[in-house]
Design a protein around this nucleic acid. Structure first.
Length: 483
RNA sequence: GCCCCCAUCGUCUAGAGGCCUAGGACAGCACCCUUUCAAGGUGCAGACAGGGAUUCGAAUUCCCUUGGGGGCGCCA
């Protein structure tokens, strides 16, 4: 895997990395991470860090690479330029390369003109046949010149690991730059040298590299070295069938982290974007993926990613998790939401999490879902506090009775609470729900909560009593008194 | 404009000539369960882009059209 540190870790790059990782693990190979930072102006070290963190979060560990080392370092392209220059020399010696004095401005102009006239924007070959003497003379005069690869007309073909046999006519290309006039190699050339010298056997990357691949093959041939196997993964598209961009919401792994997604869910979701096991299973642990994964089950059409499915995966993983584990993962998110969870008693947080476990989709949802457990008081909405089609006073007096029962029997035993509250409902001649809803709203402030008796049990006598008191006061229009 | 890749429900996909009146999952809808919300259960709806060709027979093979994506940098 060879990401460029020019931005956050994109979901598409994460998928490519995952596929590479699975492939390496499955075949007992070595997974190599190389940083492609030859664009010195766009590459930033902090992006490198985010990318590493993203990989690790997803459980993708590399065998060789920055921070780990290995026998084929260095693992940053920018640290390998001496090697690139050395191989450039071989190409020069064999007559595959010439100096080009055209300035970037000239080239951009030519390109623009070609576009306007609907001609293919191909290099004119202006400097291709400059004599050695003239080249030397202009160099001596202080002109700068890039190195261009001399493309000979031919059909380039190879067998793609996912696409099958593909071919392109190199006669259509025009000579391309492989080394800038400042002596820094261009990515496409550096990749060839790096893949070869690092003994890369399989290069699996995004389909946007297909046309690079043809050019790379031509360079391999010129150098008389064997190319690796290539595989190209269809690009992930957004709902509008465009390449995903920042405007599409969460596209970086970092965003999924902060939005409360579980790495196992994200991983499971992205692995299925273009791959399937051939049967109807769709929940996979990393280990299972390593066992099952194969490139020939990768589809060749562009998938569109649908966040709803990710939400579903996330919910499934959250529900399947042990409460203690889930509570641990939720903790930082709940704190970030401003809930004071540290001062509450032993196990209170875990109990609350347990009650909400099957009601949330993301870790961030706990902030809202758990709020009433930790607030000093809740603010019941009068509209829902009063019994349906009933009066405030009538509801207040019912809650007064509830209060009496709670004081007498407590809320510790779910079965006991249920029986005395159901008893009260029938005594009042109310349907159970008509009594339960006002209680629910009184003690939680919300209409959507976990089951009432369990909720009361976790809240405990003290909170329940105080909240009932407040609700009664509210219903009767008297200022609330702390109890 | 030129080149390359691709094309099954809204989305992810199964399907490699008869097992297909096209299967599963998400989303949607309905019902059940139920003290609310979820979760769960059951069911409904929903696709082979179009046209040719090959074949006894095509979602599956071939061609064309259309549509989508990618590339055409002294970016990666």
């Amino acid at each position: 895997m060879a990401p460029s540190p020019t931005g956050a870790l994109h979901i598409g790059n994460a998928r490519t990395a995952l596929y590479n990782y699975l492939l390496a693990r499955r075949t007992g190979g070595t997974y190599v991470l190389r940083i492609e930072d030859t664009a010195r102006d766009r590459s930033r070290p902090e992006f490198e860090q985010t990318i590493f963190e993203g990989f690790r979060w997803l459980g993708i560990e590399w065998d060789e690479g920055p921070g780990i080392g290995g026998d084929y370092g260095p693992y940053r392209q920018s640290e390998r330029v001496d090697l690139h220059r050395e191989w450039l020399g071989k190409l020069i010696d064999r007559g595959w390369v010439y100096r080009c004095f055209c300035t970037p401005e000239e080239l951009a102009d030519a390109r623009k003109r070609a576009q306007a006239e609907k001609r293919p924007p191909k290099y004119s070959g202006k400097c291709r046949n400059l004599s050695e003497a003239e080249t030397q003379q202009r160099l001596d005069a202080g002109e700068t010149a890039a190195y261009r690869f001399r493309v000979e007309p031919r059909i380039v073909e190879y067998r793609d690991l996912v696409l099958g046999d593909v071919r392109e006519d190199a006669g259509l290309w025009g000579d391309f730059v492989i080394c800038r006039s400042n002596w820094l190699p261009v990515y496409n050339f550096a990749v060839v040298i790096d893949d070869h010298t690092m003994e890369i056997t399989d290069a699996v990357r995004g389909a946007d590299h297909i046309s690079n691949t043809f050019r790379q093959i031509v360079m391999y041939d010129a150098l008389e070295i064997p190319p690796p196997r290539f595989g190209h993964l269809p690009l992930i598209l957004n709902r509008k069938k465009q390449k995903i961009s920042k405007r599409d919401g969460a596209v970086s792994v970092e965003e999924y982290m902060t939005q409360g997604y579980l790495p196992e869910a994200v991983r499971n979701f992205i692995v299925l974007l273009g791959w399937n096991p051939g049967d109807e299973r769709e929940m996979f642990s990393l280990e299972e993926l390593v066992d099952e994964y194969s490139l020939d089950r990768v589809s060749s059409a562009n998938p569109i990613y649908d966040i709803d499915k990710l939400d579903w995966f996330n919910g499934v993983y959250m529900r399947g998790m042990a409460v203690g584990e889930l509570a641990g993962r939720a903790r930082p998110f709940v704190k970030a939401a401003g809930l004071n969870i540290d001062s509450s008693g032993n196990g209170y947080f875990e109990q609350a999490v347990a009650l909400e476990q099957e009601r949330v989709k993301k870790l961030t949802d706990f902030g809202d879902a758990l709020a009433f457990f930790f607030q000093e008081q809740v603010d019941p909405d009068m509209k829902f506090l009063v019994r349906k089609r009933g009066t405030a006073e009538e509801t207040a007096s019912a809650l007064q009775k509830v209060l009496g029962l709670v004081r007498e029997y407590g809320v510790d035993d779910v079965g006991v609470s249920e029986s005395y509250l159901r008893g009260l409902a029938s005594e009042l001649g109310w349907k159970a729900g008509e009594l339960f809803m006002p209680i629910r709203v009184a003690i939680t402030g919300s209409r959507a909560t976990p089951p009432l008796f369990e909720t009361m049990q976790v809240l405990g006598d003290e909170r329940v009593i105080s909240r009932l008191n407040r609700a009664i006061a509210l219903l009767r229009g008297v200022p609330s008194v702390a109890s």
